[in-house]
């Protein structure tokens, strides 16, 4: 291994090492208290990754937006709206409905940010609130159908050759994102626009369409995660997406993607998600109360970023 790491790969290597450290620490704990090492069994790890796939898919979409230097705060209720609308429609049309919701939300977000030039932070926040309002209004007074369709159950719970389908879906989404980012003009346009939109625009990139595209991908990912989560918990419910926003941002940033855009590799996001999922599972094995979890969670993010996420000093 080379001793000098490129700035882009340093976060990835360090967070991988941290993942290993978590596994070792967790295993040491379980060996000491119970004399077993569940963390190292394939079955347990697959199960953790299965529950982590929802976060993983959200983070994949979030990364596209963060690479542009924007942020998508509408993920929680995009996820919920897609899931609730899909189960309300039900049957064979459930999955297309969820994707259609994702597409529509992504278009609205993208147009607001790219064409109206409203800061993404506040626009997606507004869209999130509106979606919440729509869902409350839709479910109010009567209870629409909210049970998962057989297809959703299959996607979230079944296994093919021993591997949970949810992980396969996550892998497929990852493959698509990696291909987009490294093999297509659209991917390169995302990096260029994220580095400096004005320069990208002058180079002939249609930056507004790039932004809309990234927001659409983000919302589509959120809706896929919604479908999976519905299958996993057998029904769609209000607030099901709330737990995914901040961990998704944290995973993307821990993976070395710059929060102001332009820099980052998808592998990093993948490792960031695994790190957060494993950290959570080790903390639950230790039966850490919520207070301790939050403190450890925050401390880990800050200290990891102190190691590799530091900015250049402003000198001119």
């Amino acid at each position: 291994m080379q001793l000098s790491l490129s700035a882009e790969n340093k976060p990835i290597v360090i967070s991988s090492l941290f993942v290993v450290a978590i596994l070792i620490a967790g295993t040491a704990y379980t060996l000491w208290t119970a004399g077993t090492a569940p963390l190292l069994s394939v079955g347990y790890l697959l199960q953790q990754l299965q529950t982590g796939s929802f976060l993983g898919i959200c983070a994949a979409g979030m990364m596209m937006v963060i690479l542009l230097g924007h942020i998508d705060l509408s993920i929680p209720w995009t996820l919920t709206a897609a899931a609730m609308t899909a189960t309300a429609v039900g049957g064979d049309m459930a999955l297309p409905t969820a994707l259609a919701v994702g597409l529509a939300v992504g278009l609205v977000n993208g147009i607001g940010v790219a064409y109206l030039r409203i800061p993404s932070m506040i626009f997606t926040l507004g869209v999130d609130t509106v979606l919440r309002g729509l869902m409350v209004a839709q479910t109010g007074g009567f209870a629409p159908q909210d049970t998962a369709t057989p297809l959703m159950l299959f996607l979230a719970k079944d296994r093919i050759l021993g591997i949970p389908v949810a992980i396969l879906v996550w892998a497929a989404v990852s493959l698509v994102i990696v291909t987009i980012l490294t093999r297509t003009g659209f991917g390169r346009s995302i990096y260029a626009t994220g580095s400096r939109e004005g320069a990208a625009y002058l180079s002939g990139i249609r930056t507004r369409r790039v932004i809309v595209g990234a927001f659409v991908i983000s919302s589509l990912c959120a809706s896929i995660a919604g479908v999976l989560l519905t299958g996993y918990s057998a029904k769609a419910y209000q607030g099901m997406g709330n737990a995914f926003l901040l961990p998704a941002i944290a995973a993307v940033v821990l993976g070395g993607t710059h929060i102001l855009g332009g820099k980052g590799r998808y592998v990093g996001t993948l490792i960031g998600v695994i790190l957060i999922v494993l950290l959570n599972s080790v903390l639950s094995i230790m039966q850490m109360p919520e207070a301790g979890r939050q403190i450890i969670y925050g401390t880990v993010i800050v200290s990891m970023l102190l190691v590799y996420g530091r900015n250049q000093r402003v000198t001119s």
Binding site: L246, I249, A250, I259, L260, I295, G298, V302, G309, R310
Partner: peptide, 13 residues
């Protein structure tokens, strides 16, 4: 560290 991400973490703390 960028304020947005630093405070995301300290907020959890």
């Amino acid at each position: 560290i960028q304020p947005i991400i630093a405070t995301l973490a300290t907020g959890a703390v």
